[in-house]
Design a protein around this nucleic acid. Sequence first.
DNA 1: AATCGATTTTGATCTTTATCAAACAATTGA
DNA 2: TCAATTGTTTGATAAAGATCAAAATCGATT
Lengths: 187, 187
Amino acid sequence: MRLDENSIKKYNLTDEEIKLTMSSYKPKSYKANEFFLEEGQVCNAIGFVTRGLFRSFFYDDHGNEITTDFFPAGTLIIAFDSFNNRTPSREFIRAIVESEVMSISYEKQKELYAKVPAWNQICKDLADVKSHEMTERSKRFQTLSATERYHLFCKEYPDILQQATLGHIASYLGVDIATLSRIRRKK
Amino acid sequence: MRLDENSIKKYNLTDEEIKLTMSSYKPKSYKANEFFLEEGQVCNAIGFVTRGLFRSFFYDDHGNEITTDFFPAGTLIIAFDSFNNRTPSREFIRAIVESEVMSISYEKQKELYAKVPAWNQICKDLADVKSHEMTERSKRFQTLSATERYHLFCKEYPDILQQATLGHIASYLGVDIATLSRIRRKK
DNA sequence: AATCGATTTTGATCTTTATCAAACAATTGA
DNA sequence: TCAATTGTTTGATAAAGATCAAAATCGATT
């Protein structure tokens, strides 16, 4: 989920509101492999990735890590369900490389809702974007082969391609590691 | 997306608000194969299915109909992207059997926002539910075989199983028709 | 009841993807 | 720098799923 200066403009925030928003966010650094969120925790913050790359994943029945999403710089990092419903997350979110995040706690976020009304709309829109993204992702599984999904991934996320391992990408695309290795070679 | 009396209770609507809401919805009947929404139209209404079954679909590059969702009684029927962004839909929504829908226009919906504040929260929550559903759907494509996806579908939607064709379900699950026929036989 | 169209099943075959195991390469930390 | 770990490639083989075409079934209509 991407959030940048342009996309925020249309909400016409006042300088005061922008200041309030900015001061609510705190920067934090993450070493490679450090967790933004561990399984079983309630997701207590929304993070805005300013540098680096994260991924979210869970363990399937066979104990394999299944990557569900990547969070490069410029995107929001959040365990949606856990954050919204205040329930323990069944996912991990972990830095792939050294990263930096501006984050805001659940409580601060609630305060912002009251002080900066536009935030309600922003969060509604974020939920819409998220559901759109997930719908597109499902459509690809419905209609594309493993090879096609991989090529689309390469085109869309050339940056992630450099930093994530083959294994991360394979599980994200729902393909076996060995198979993805062969797909990659053929290009 | 399901919406029933129980799920609506937590918003503590006043009698007045409930009356306003109810009077904003108009019933409409659909014959089998009639369209709730045709491709290229802007989705101008949210519908609440009271009877019957709908499905949404689009055409892929080879001209095949790809079913993206089913809408049985008790669920909301809406082309999310189109409705929210006021853009022409790339999907069709069509009745599978004779059906009935309570629907509200985009404009009326906007009015409700103003008159019944809780509707903002309801719609935010609906977006959250939608993104949750789509995330789960993606996870299944990532981790389950065609057979496993089909069995889960049978368990979760025994009613749809009776009314939709094999072809509808096959494309929904991302499986070839012939393959799904064989999967079904083996059970 | 006969017919038309749509849907489903089936057989034969081909392609894609998974599995298992081993070798190889890269990375990290002592 | 040298293990030790982690990640990637490769080969052989099996299983899953797609494709094509024909036959069978089902429903609705005349």
